[in-house]
C-alpha cells in the first residue's frame, strides 16, 4: 500500500492502476469519488427540456400528495358530521335510498372541498417562504426597501 502511494505521487499516471490498487478499499473509494465528481458536474448540465420534464413530473407528484392529504382531512371532517347525514337520511325514509343519497353527497362534497383546498394550498405553497424569513434576516426590511441605500452602494 505504501509502495502504491509512492508510485502515485511520483508518476501521477492512471496507467499505474492495477488490480492490486483497486482492491485496496481506500483507492476504490477515491476512484469512485473522482468519477462521481464528474457525474455530479454532468447533472448540472441537463438539457432545458429534460429539466422541464423533471420539474413537471415532480410537480405532478407533489400536487397528487397535496390533493390526497386534503381529501384525507375532509374525510375526517365528514365522519364527524355523519350524524347529521344520518338524521337527514332517516327523514327521507328509505334506507337504500338514504345510502345512495349519502354516498353521492359525500362524493360531491369531497370533490368540492378538495378543489378548494387544493386551490388554497397551491396558493400558499407558491409563496415558498413567507415574509417571516425576510423579517428575521440579517438585514432589517428597511435595508432591502431603501433605494437610497442601493444607490449609495453603487456610488461607493
Amino acid at each position: 500500500m505504501n509502495m502504491h502511494k509512492d508510485n502515485m505521487t511520483n508518476q501521477n499516471d492512471i496507467n499505474l492502476i492495477d488490480d492490486d490498487m483497486i482492491s485496496d478499499p481506500v483507492m476504490e473509494a477515491q476512484i469512485a469519488q473522482s468519477i462521481t465528481d464528474f457525474l455530479n458536474n454532468r447533472v448540472q448540465h441537463l438539457k432545458p427540456e429534460q429539466e422541464q420534464r423533471l420539474s413537471a413530473a415532480r410537480n405532478a407528484a407533489v400536487d397528487y400528495l397535496a390533493e390526497q392529504q386534503a381529501q384525507y382531512s375532509t374525510a375526517n371532517r365528514i365522519a364527524g358530521h355523519g350524524n347529521v347525514l344520518h338524521w337527514f337520511g332517516q327523514h327521507v325514509g328509505n334506507n337504500i335510498e338514504q345510502h345512495r343519497f349519502a354516498s353521492t353527497a359525500l362524493l360531491l362534497v369531497v370533490m368540492l372541498v378538495t378543489f378548494f383546498a387544493v386551490q388554497q394550498f397551491g396558493f400558499n405553497n407558491n409563496l415558498e417562504n413567507s415574509d417571516a424569513f425576510l423579517l428575521a434576516s440579517d438585514l432589517p426590511p428597511e435595508a432591502y426597501a431603501d433605494k437610497g441605500f442601493d444607490a449609495w452602494i453603487e456610488s461607493n
Binding site: 447533472v43 448540472q44 441537463l46 423533471l54 420539474s55 415532480r58 392529504q69
Partner: peptide
C-alpha cells in the same frame, strides 16, 4: 407524515441524478 413541500424538496435534490442514473 411528509408535507407536499418536503416531498417537493426531496425530489428536487434527487431528480437529476435519478434521471441520469
Amino acid at each position: 407524515m411528509a408535507t407536499p413541500k418536503e416531498l417537493s424538496d426531496f425530489l428536487a435534490t434527487v431528480e437529476r441524478r435519478a434521471f441520469k442514473q
